[in-house]
Design a protein around this nucleic acid. Structure first.
Lengths: 202, 202
DNA sequence: TTTTATACTTAACAGTGTTAAGTGAAATAA
DNA sequence: TTATTTCACTTAACACTGTTAAGTATAAAA
């Protein structure tokens, strides 16, 4: 355990410091409104130092999103474990998804609504990413419902994508259009979930 | 009809020229990737000239979106006129909405997905805007279905918002995540519409 | 003690939206 | 017809942005 290990530890420490600073700013003010120079100022390093730890601004964001979406998937997996009825589990899972989006709007924004630059979702939902893990979990939930004959449709992949679209639709609209004259939030989300679960039921 | 009128006509002409240039660039390359200087270059004026005709870049975009969304609403109104069955009309209207989004992805993007700057949708769905006109038309369609007792739910406003969210969900995801392994597009959209119309039916 | 590698910074590039100040021509008033 | 004012437009600049090439100390290794 010479100085080699110590330096590596210090490197990891600074990496986390950058990540923490960036997360706080991104969540508070939104990705587009935070500059690399602001992040650098917060950690009291020069802006270029960040580039020694992350490829670019988008990469910084991606790492943060991965962290956050790992948490979302954990939440959804916990629900599945403690809920025996597959339809009920799916309902509660969707509710958790939407709530998560509303709880971390800027995280949701950057991961699912408008990714920055030319990367257009390529990295955010690539094979093995946390976002993909969440999607796969959703599909498992749908599969359960189909297997037990609770749904009239049998195309698991298509249903999963439709269900995701519903959840995403309500979450993203509530986030991006806060001034729109929405009906009661909770009622709207529950109605939404109710509509498509009964639409899918036998 | 002195020179006063001629100048006013010329002003309106240049205004349209700017609008046309901006629309072409925005649609082709996306709002974020088009600079005011590029637009100015295209019309062969200095960048500052644009500011004599439009408040800022976002305003330029807003005017374009209004134009485009007027067309969408026209399309949807035509469908309602020629389609007697209210549920069928709603279905076809939603289909038109999603298709429209996929046909003009950059228009849809800037109007419904990520509006630029701090204006966050305030202007895009304000009272009397074309976007609002489209929403109101959708609500009328839903109201028709409820009135004729075709839907089990009766909260017109809530259903409208849920239906909108569904359509928006599928449109926005298909637009922003083109690399995702989607099932067949048309099948997915039709399934989506089928799920929530049967979920709403008595 | 010299050399090499590491960590970080300075200065700059090429771009952004936007504005204050200035110019030249056309329309109006004298 | 000449002087004045109005209008359309441009130049130059401001205050930013993400990003990189080059340079500088400091710590580790030879």
């Amino acid at each position: 355990m010479g100085p080699r290990q110590r330096r590596e530890r210090e490197r990891e420490q600074l990496r986390q410091e950058i990540l923490d600073a960036a997360r706080e700013l991104f969540v508070k003010e939104g990705y587009e409104n935070v500059s690399m120079r602001r992040i650098a100022e917060k950690i009291e390093y020069s802006p270029t130092t960040i580039y020694l730890y992350f490829q670019d601004k988008a990469d910084l964001l991606f790492q943060i999103c991965e962290e956050t979406f790992a948490k979302l998937t954990d939440e959804m997996e916990a629900i599945t474990r403690e809920c025996k009825d597959p339809v009920e589990a799916l309902k509660r899972g969707c509710r958790a998804y939407v709530d998560f989006g509303l709880r971390y709007p800027n995280h949701y924004r950057v991961t699912f609504i408008n990714h920055p630059g030319r990367l257009e979702g390529q990295p955010y939902l690539r094979e093995g990413s946390q976002g993909m893990r969440a999607y796969n979990h959703l599909r498992q939930g749908v599969e359960e419902c189909v297997k037990e004959g609770r749904f009239r449709e049998t195309d698991v992949e298509a249903i999963t994508q439709a269900v995701w679209a519903s959840g995403h639709g309500i979450a993203s609209l509530l986030i991006t259009k806060p001034d729109f004259p929405w009906v009661n939030r909770d009622k709207l989300i529950d109605l939404m979930i109710d509509i498509y679960t009964s639409g899918l039921s036998v």
